[in-house]
Design a protein around this nucleic acid. Structure first.
Length: 604
DNA sequence: TCGACTAACACGTTTGAAGAGT
DNA sequence: AACTCTTCAAACGTGTTAGTCG
């Protein structure tokens, strides 16, 4: 087993994030679409690896994975927002998404264990501004931040588990705090993003590859904001989010009620001042102003005047008796810390160990460095229809995927139903299964796939997600890399996977294939404690865990690979999954170490 | 001056502990 | 003793708003 000593970066603790982050941020705006390391690696690819992969016509290569389907349960709600132009508030402390991603999974093997991940990637490389009642691209996107992947707290769980209930990612939080230590997903404000959900067979994780399904629901695209720009979005949120009930028409926090409170407050302040200002030299002129015309500044002045800072014995006012309760109680930092996290870790380890035991090819970990088949997928995406993002149209689609681009005229609830559907690429439905989940062969898959590439972002008309007539091939590393394999390549090992988007009229999102890049080693290190009453959400931070929707985006191209971090959704994060910045190799979860106490601990 | 952002605020929901009842 | 149900307070999730910053 590898030790921390083999990966000096692991010893650096939390600051590693910042290190890597700043490396990203310092990347020049004119940075190439691909990082130098990637470029070099791509150039170094043997021609055979760049060639299109064989099309898997052989039915024998089909696995149950091909039937994995995902449905966006609250698609209608998402479409409501999408039709207006979904905005998501991001705050320093982290803000949940609303609507949340509520999903239904089917087609999984009930007895196998899976891990569900959520990540959010830039939908394009533009920055937006709300003007003229709509969103306009106003420039290039900011440098990409370290990617973080939110691991569903139930992970790993059996296919039966996932299929028996609605899967919700509502615990995931978004932040604009680039130095966030809470494990929230870091995003730039005023940028457009696309959430993705990944289903990874747990044991595949152990072998640095294996099958994977990724699902994209275009209607879940959103623009991040620090304050709502579109009133319609605010209304929608208030009307559909139970937490915002108070702001509804009949709520105590409605505009009407707030105005009434404001008036009452002014009245009380006025009365208070009547007492305080028994001294004629006080701010009597403030009181001369009609209440109705009192400005906020005036209110502040009134409040200040009424505060017990003017103890005048002559007026009988006793400041110490005043009930000014501005006692802001300091938030107690929750330090569920390492003990809790460790329990979580051990749980996953156990489950993973079980997986390993149940897998005849449990020696896969040792064979991860073996090469694998290369497969290529390419497709052309038609231009999407314009939508609620006036200058950034979304692809028109339903909440589920269909391999056939069928018009969705039946969806009358969707105000845009009349818009011609997007012809989603056949790649997404017909792509081959690259690795069998049941195979005992620990081979890694090599895949080349093609994703649409948005035109240059400096255009005032942002390009729609997944729409392009000039697809760009996305290449993954040809050779498998293991921690034991010294290399200067920036590419991690790769494996087969699938990506899926939904088409306009389908019932389910159905995956096609892409590479889990770099390999995720969640299972081997993550342990959940079944006895724990609550399972923390966890976030795997990895800059290049999965391929970008559009590899040409600058944000997808860190010049150096930041470390991967594994966070629980807790205030304190003792565990961190790092990647060796020198070798660009992802460190298996078993090398997670504890940083909460300023010390390193190899957990397994 | 203006747009973006932040912190404080009030209200509602959620959660979990404590107590009562069976 | 064990279980279920109710109550209640704290924590948390909302949008709003005033103020700050560049």
């Amino acid at each position: 087993m590898l030790s921390v000593e083999m990966y000096p970066s692991l010893a650096l603790g939390p600051q590693r994030i910042g290190d890597c982050f700043y490396r990203d941020r310092q990347a020049p705006a004119h940075m190439p679409l691909y990082p130098p390391t990637c470029d070099a690696a791509a150039k170094a690819l043997p021609p055979r690896l760049l060639a299109p992969p064989p099309v898997p016509n052989d039915p024998a290569t089909k696995t149950p994975k091909d039937d994995v389907k995902m449905e966006l349960e609250n698609a209608s709600l998402w479409k409501q927002f999408s039709s207006v132009g979904t905005e998501m508030i991001i705050t320093k402390k982290g803000r949940r998404m609303f609507p949340g991603l509520r999903l239904k999974l089917s087609g999984l093997n009930p007895s196998l264990r899976y891990i569900l991940l959520l990540d959010i990637i830039p939908a394009d490389n533009s920055r937006y501004r709300f003007q003229g009642g709509g969103w306009q691209a106003v420039g290039g996107a900011e440098a990409r931040l370290p990617d973080r992947v939110f691991i569903h707290p139930d992970s790993p769980a059996t296919g039966a588990h996932w299929q028996s209930r609605t899967i919700s990612f509502h615990y995931a939080k978004l932040t604009n705090n680039t130095l966030d230590t809470q494990g929230h997903i870091i995003l730039h404000s005023l940028h457009r993003y696309q959430p993705r959900v990944h289903v990874i067979e747990a044991r595949d994780v152990l072998r640095w590859g294996g099958g994977q399904h990724s699902f994209v629901f275009p209607e879940t695209q959103f623009i991040t904001v620090t304050a709502y720009q579109n009133n319609k979005i605010t209304e929608l949120k208030i009307n559909s989010n139970p937490f915002a009930k108070g702001f509804r028409e009949d709520g105590m926090n409605s505009k009407k009620q707030r105005d009434a409170r404001q008036k009452r407050k002014i009245s009380v302040l006025t009365e208070t001042l009547d007492i305080v200002n028994c001294d004629p030299c006080d701010s009597a002129e403030l009181l001369q102003q009609p209440i109705g015309t009192t400005t906020s500044t005036d209110l502040q002045a009134l409040a200040l005047a009424s505060l017990p800072q003017l103890p005048d014995p002559s007026c009988g006012f006793r400041p110490e008796e005043a009930s000014y309760q501005d006692t802001m109680v300091q938030e107690q930092p929750l330090d569920l810390g390492q003990a809790f996290m460790a329990s979580q870790m051990s749980d996953i380890s156990i489950s993973m160990a079980n997986e390993m035991q149940n897998t005849p090819g449990s020696e896969v970990a040792n064979n991860m460095i073996e090469g694998s088949d290369a497969t290529s997928y390419s497709s052309t995406f038609p231009t999407a229809q314009s939508n609620s993002f006036p200058s950034a149209p979304l692809p028109q689609s339903s909440s589920s995927f269909s391999s056939l681009p069928v018009s969705d005229s039946s969806d009358t609830s969707n105000p845009q139903a009349s818009i011609p559907p997007i012809d989603y690429p056949s790649i997404l439905s017909s792509s081959p299964t690259l690795s069998s989940s049941t195979t005992t062969t620990p081979s890694l898959q090599q895949t080349t796939f093609t994703f649409p590439t948005p035109p240059p972002s400096n255009s005032s008309s942002p390009q729609p997600l997944l729409s392009s007539s000039s697809p760009t091939a996305y290449h993954t590393m040809p050779e498998t890399i293991s921690p034991h394999t010294p290399t200067d390549s920036s590419f991690p090992a790769q494996s087969s996977a699938s990506v899926c988007t939904n088409s306009p009229s389908s019932e389910h999102a159905q995956p096609s294939h892409f590479l889990p890049y770099p390999p995720v080693e969640i299972g081997a290190m993550t342990q959940f404690n079944p006895a724990a009453p609550y399972r923390p959400d966890m976030v795997l931070h990895h800059p290049s865990l999965l391929p970008q929707l559009d590899p040409s985006l600058p944000s997808s191209l860190p010049t150096s690979t930041p470390p991967s971090t594994l966070y629980p959704a807790f205030p304190s994060y003792p565990l961190r999954l790092c990647q060796d910045p020198h070798s660009s190799l992802s460190i298996p979860f078993r090398h997670l170490y504890n940083t909460s106490m300023g010390e390193r601990t190899v957990l397994a």
